[in-house]
Amino acid sequence: MSEQATIVATDLTKVFGARRALDRVGFELPAGAFLSIFGPNGAGKTTLLRILSTLARPTSGNAQVLGFDLKEKPGDLRAHIGLISHKPLLYLDLSAEENLLLAARLYGVADPYERVGELLATVELTARRHDVVRTFSRGMTQRLAIARALVHDPQLVFLDEPYSGLDPRAVQIFDELLHKVRQKSQDGKPRSFCMVSHDMDKGLALATHLLILERGKVVLFARKEDVNPGEFARLYLNSVGMGVA
């Protein structure tokens, strides 16, 4: 059980009408890994992330995420995953504390007040806990969004373009925070991450595993150590650069 892979995806395909968003995507991600997904716009990165995080269903193929069957047991899986998106997934007219308490109660966290207090301290928002989220800066909102995603101590965290719209200072805080939560996991089990980002440097720096998608197909999936940086840069420009041009 402890050596279980985080994600085992087999032939994940998403088709609708003539459009093939994902085409037989398969890979195996070990526990504790940080996967960075690269690819041009429309390559299927977000679709893949949405399928793995149970927000969308594959047309065919399947995946075992944290040992749960994506098609059979999406509900059980949801209790163990979190999502940090470019949208904060928060209610702007509720306070920071209310938002976190709401999430904690929905997930059935054992001691919601204690957990929320702890998280607010982690993301350094204790002083603003009673303020309505609408009054927060983009960076503060994003910090709260991180706390919101971690409220139930998920074993696998999905990150969907978490840097978009952040100013440099907010990016720095976000990185520190990510580093912190990466180290710490409540029950001592390694936490895994799965990130989609346009920022190649960030994606490379954080990753242990790399995945390049192009037109819904896997172009590259490898451990970072096994990839020659020059070769990766060439592949990356080849697929991602093409999308831009």
Binding site: G17, A18, R19, R20, R215, M242
Partner: peptide, 16 residues
């Protein structure tokens, strides 16, 4: 119409 759309997409892919 739909088949034509699919073929167009395939053609795109091939040319690339």
């Amino acid at each position: 119409e739909q088949r034509i759309e699919t073929l167009k997409l395939h053609l795109d892919e091939l040319s690339l």
